[in-house]
Each structure stands twice: as structure tokens, then as C-alpha cells.
């Protein structure tokens, strides 16, 4: 890890990343506490463009918090993040967090980073196609015809075009999640984040969502996937990271992490899943 990348104030688009345009995400010394409870103790990693990173670990290991810090849904306490050509920087001097980013800057970063949630979070008062169109109109400033065309394109991609006029409550969990994926994809983000996207689905519905995620990975989408689907992580990821107590305990290609992990904790964790 490049240790010269200490925290600098403010947002400097592309500045530091410019040296290495092949990196989609760079995280340096990321810490996050909720009150007195420290959840992330200092996470650092680089993710090259086009790669799929799976983050695994027990509940409470900090994997969802890490993911949510990447698009600022959680404010990091310290450390620095470069993502999608933007720099989200925090005070690393231990004097508490300095949040110099404006709401507009944060919104710009988020527009480039798609996120899919465990609970789908479709808006129930809008139809499927309206759910996908909303941010295209409000954020991407497309007119309603362009937004509809693009929304339909991405709904077709997740095989949900037939349900365009229906309300989310009429759909199965798997269908809702596929719409949520289309909603994020339609923004044409540089990076996609998946926060336990299949954890609230039964196995059959999980399969249809994983199929869509496989398709994205094959297309070369940069993805960070927090998951309990070990088979998926093993098969689709370029890289697997095992988190334990807010630290990266194991980080490598799936064949090594799953077959021959260096960490005992990782081995124990995997044995519960792989038998």
C-alpha cells in the first residue's frame, strides 16, 4: 500500500487517482465508530477497474459498514477513500472527523456508485418503471421520454420489462430485487455495490438475482459484493476479502482464500459454510 496517501482535506477529483487510472476504488486507513463502538479499525485496499470483489465475514465484522462508507451512507471517522474519480477524505490525525464535503459533492459521487440493498427499498408509491426513471429525471436530468427509454432498456436487461407498469407490492422479492438492480444500473454508474442483496430471499429467488449479478460481472462491471453466498463469491469474484472485527483478515483470489486461507479465523468461518 502506498503510504504517502495520507488524508488531504477536500475533494480533488481524479487528482491522486490520476496517477493510476486503472484503480476504481482506493481505501486508506478507513476507520468508523458508532459512538464508543469502533466497527472498522483501519481498512486499506485498492480495487482495479472491472474487478469483482466479494467481502465475506461473520455478522458484525463490519462488512456492511465498509460498503456503506464507500458511498458515504455512513460517514467514516477517519481515513481516505478515492472512488469513481472522486476523493472522499477525512481527518486521519485522530482529532475527530472533518467533513469538508458538501451535500452536492456527496450526491455527485453517489450518482456514480450504484447500490443494491438487502431490503430492495423500492418506493411503493411508484410503479416499477417510475422507480427506475425517478433518479434519471431528478439527478441525470433526462427528459421523461429519454428516462423511460433508458429505464425500459435496463428493465429488459434484468428481464423485468413485462412488470414495468406494476407496483412493487405486486412483485416477488426476487423480482423486486431485480428492479432495484435495474434502478441502480440505469444511472450507468462506474461501480456497483451489493449489500447482502440476496439475504432476504429464498433459494429459488436468490438464484434469479445471482444470475443477473453474474451477467454484470461478465460485462466487466466493477462490483463490490457483501455476501453470504460462498458459491457465488468463489465462482464470480476476482478477489475475496474476509473481514473480522473491523480488519481485513484475509484478502486474495478465491481459489486461495477458499482452499488454503492463511488465517485460522477465515478457515473456521468457511468451514461453517463449506462443511
Amino acid at each position: 500500500m502506498n503510504t504517502t496517501l495520507t488524508a488531504v482535506e477536500g475533494e480533488r477529483p481524479c487528482d491522486t487517482m490520476g496517477a493510476d487510472p486503472s484503480v476504481a476504488i482506493r481505501v486508506v486507513g478507513l476507520k468508523k465508530s458508532f459512538g464508543d463502538v469502533a466497527v472498522l479499525h483501519g481498512i486499506s485496499f485498492d480495487l482495479p477497474r472491472g474487478q469483482v470483489l466479494s467481502i465475506i465475514g461473520a455478522s458484525g465484522s463490519g462488512k456492511s459498514t465498509l460498503l456503506r462508507c464507500l458511498n458515504y451512507l455512513e460517514r467514516p471517522s477517519a481515513g481516505a477513500i478515492w472512488i469513481a474519480g472522486h476523493q472522499l477524505t477525512f481527518d486521519a490525525n485522530g482529532e475527530g472527523a472533518r467533513h469538508s464535503l458538501s451535500a452536492a459533492q456527496i450526491a455527485r459521487v453517489r450518482a456514480e456508485v450504484g447500490m443494491v440493498f438487502q431490503q430492495f427499498n423500492l418506493w411503493p408509491h411508484m410503479t416499477v418503471v417510475q422507480n427506475v426513471m425517478e433518479a434519471l429525471i431528478q439527478v441525470r436530468k433526462l427528459n421523461s421520454k429519454e428516462a423511460r427509454n433508458r429505464a425500459e432498456h435496463y428493465l429488459a436487461k434484468v428481464n423485468m420489462l413485462d412488470a414495468a407498469a406494476r407496483y412493487p407490492a405486486r412483485l416477488s422479492g426476487g423480482q423486486q430485487q431485480r428492479v432495484a438492480i435495474a434502478r441502480a444500473l440505469a444511472m450507468e454508474p462506474q461501480i456497483m455495490l451489493f449489500d447482502e442483496a440476496t439475504s432476504s430471499l429464498d433459494p429459488e429467488l436468490t438464484a434469479e438475482v445471482l444470475a443477473v449479478m453474474r451477467l454484470l460481472a461478465r460485462d466487466g462491471t466493477t462490483m463490490v459484493v457483501v455476501t453470504h453466498e460462498m458459491a457465488f463469491a468463489r465462482e464470480v469474484s476476482d478477489r475475496v476479502m474476509f473481514l473480522h472485527d473491523g480488519l481485513i483478515e484475509e484478502d486474495g483470489v478465491p481459489s486461495v482464500v477458499f482452499s488454503n486461507p492463511g488465517s485460522n479465523r477465515c478457515r473456521q468461518f468457511l468451514s461453517k459454510f463449506l462443511g
Binding site: L73, A103, F117, N121, W123, A135, Q138, R183, A184, M187
Partner: peptide
């Protein structure tokens, strides 16, 4: 979560209040 989904798409607070 409905608010977070809107935030994650880059929507700003006044729009989130008004639309979501």
C-alpha cells in the same frame, strides 16, 4: 431504507422529501 435508496442514487434532501 427508502430514503437511503434515494440518497444512494444521488438525490438531494429537498427532492427526497418531496418525491419519496
Amino acid at each position: 431504507g427508502h430514503l437511503e435508496a434515494a440518497r444512494a442514487l444521488g438525490m438531494r434532501t429537498p427532492r427526497i422529501l418531496g418525491r419519496i
